[in-house]
Write a protein that binds this DNA or RNA. Structure first.
Lengths: 233, 233
DNA sequence: CGGTTAATTGATGTGGGTCAAAAGCAGTGG
DNA sequence: CCACTGCTTTTGACCCACATCAATTAACCG
């Protein structure tokens, strides 16, 4: 009954796994680990499911698929992330999820998670807090999309990701693992891949950062923050 | 111990009010009604508060104030709406709220609401559902902002508001009360007031709708939906 | 009646989109 | 080892949706 080894100890995943089951006889039926290759679709929108999922290893992203083609990336998912905290409360998800790298995913039955949520105050608190965090971030992100230029939006996304990566990786010499194509950045911040290329080239020329081969190297964190932070002093 | 009269019977507000208190002796101390004039700031971001608020009558909006001037409107608040469902879980709000018309607001102590939330499954469920609704809407809205043109964004906002207004008003002849200035629409969907004016003029010329004097009159709902719905068939 | 706030309209500017070609760079297979 | 293919990034030329600036009108109000 131990948590997924790659998840952080204070995350929703770990807490759910440690939480006592109301039905001690059921063993490990409620939990199941699966591996998927990169590019595999892990969940699809408007489809009901009795399971909820946690990323244990690798990267994925949550997105909305548009009928005319094109997609909106809503969040990049790192180890320890639920596909979405609200999927604890709804059978039918409004988003799709796709693997960015090879990923290990933990599949939990919603009924069991929900039982633990109801009887374990710690689980409940963790879920509440992750809903709060998502809502706060959504507000901030909407603001960035409406009020900021292309450079600022890209910088904002990178800073946001850096923070999340640093929470689970040791960062040396400002080098962050970041397995995104320019198209993913574009689909997240509402630009074209061509323009993301131009923005990143500018950042490189100005000695702010370099992004290639799945590694982001930040050369001038001060300047990056000046550009990308929503509340600059 | 009755609910605020203007709130819908199945809303969070009504459920909280009907929920039994863990401390029957405290009377009505935990609840307090206040009236505010239009334009008054009802809550300000980065400020801690032991209260949470519900709109009982009138309109308001939740927004983020930017340091350089300018604001991002996140949601228009109608009777029955909490300023935000997540404020049940956090003392310090990340948003401000301003009255759009004169408003009556119900102020509740967070501690009392939180107690009722913990012990009444119905309240808990209502809060969960409104968090789900907010998250779903945020995803959809982010998609609209990133992928849609000015016309489509304005149409989306109006359709969304029409739906919410219709839930609490009887609509006759497609006339919706809508006390917004063009600047509010602009601050919500990320355009300038000037461009919102042009978009609305176009809609009027094409016989789709007319918005003036706080009334939205929809002349061609089909066409409006064709333009504004995210998932058009 | 002047003063304020909101909406309209026109002229002009520009950030980022679109299109297309080229170059880099795996992987694959002969 | 090289040719071929598919994917990603880069670069350039051109375009347009929306911003910006500014003037005018309309509505309201003490």
């Amino acid at each position: 009954m131990s948590a997924c080894v790659t998840c952080r100890d204070d995350g929703v995943c770990a807490l759910i796994s440690r939480s006592p089951s109301p039905d001690p006889n059921q063993g490990e039926q409620w939990r199941h680990f699966v591996f998927f290759d990169a590019r595999k679709e892990l969940a699809s929108q408007n489809t009901a499911s009795d399971y909820i999922f946690v990323i244990c290893a690798g990267w994925a992203f949550r997105y909305i698929q548009l009928a005319e083609g094109g997609r909106q990336i809503l969040k990049f998912l790192l180890p320890g992330d639920l596909f979405s905290p609200i999927s604890i409360f709804e059978r039918e998800s409004h988003f799709s999820v796709k693997a960015l790298t090879g990923v290990q995913v933990c599949r939990l039955t919603r009924s069991e998670v929900h039982k633990r949520y109801l009887r374990d105050r710690k689980v409940q608190f963790a879920v509440e807090q992750s809903c709060v965090a998502e809502a706060r971030h959504a507000s901030e992100f909407i603001t960035v999309l409406c009020k900021r230029s292309a450079e600022e939006r890209v910088a904002y996304l990178l800073l946001h990701l850096m923070q999340r990566i640093a929470a689970s990786h040791v960062i040396r010499e400002q080098r962050y693992p970041l397995p995104l194509r320019q198209q993913h950045i574009a689909d997240c911040v509402g630009l074209t891949q061509v323009h993301v290329s131009r923005v990143l080239s500018l950042f490189r020329e100005r000695g702010i950062l370099a992004l290639s081969d799945g590694v982001l190297e930040v050369r001038n964190p001060q300047e990056l923050k000046r550009i990308g932070l929503l509340n600059r002093s």
